[in-house]
């Protein structure tokens, strides 16, 4: 599988985590994902479009998310991404890892 060939670096892993988490609240299109991340993080995290779309397509091929064309309420064609079961599992794993990492970093910071 793809995992074997490409070791996800920390930043990319973070983007995947953010996207998967956003999608776990329900299907969304690329713009919506970016906007959600930005507003929820109080404008601190700004997702670059140049990274977002390649990541979406990659995750689609990995089977974590699926995509479908749909009309939005103001009658535009948008590509809606939806979390799959494999994606949900992935999200849980990543979230666990992230929590562990944050805890570890926090400990080190407090200790120092």
């Amino acid at each position: 599988m793809l995992r074997r060939h490409r070791k996800p670096d920390a930043l990319q892993g973070t983007l995947d985590l953010l996207v998967l988490k956003t999608l776990s609240c329900g299907p969304h299109h690329g713009y919506g994902i970016a906007a959600d991340i930005q507003s929820i993080s109080d404008d601190i995290l700004r997702v670059e479009e140049g990274s977002l779309y390649p990541a979406l397509h990659r995750m689609e091929h990995l089977g974590w998310i699926t995509a479908e064309w749909q009309m939005t309420e103001n009658n535009r064609r948008a590509r809606l991404y939806k979390l799959t079961r494999a994606g949900q599992r992935r999200l849980d794993e990543e979230q666990l890892k992230w929590d562990r990492l944050m805890k570890a970093v926090g400990k080190v910071l407090r200790f120092a």
Binding site: H29, G30, Y31, E49, Y53, W69, T72, R76, R77, A78
Partner: peptide, 11 residues
């Protein structure tokens, strides 16, 4: 992708 990008920019 073109469609997707257009939608993004429109939004």
């Amino acid at each position: 992708f073109d469609d997707e990008a257009r939608f993004h920019i429109d939004a």
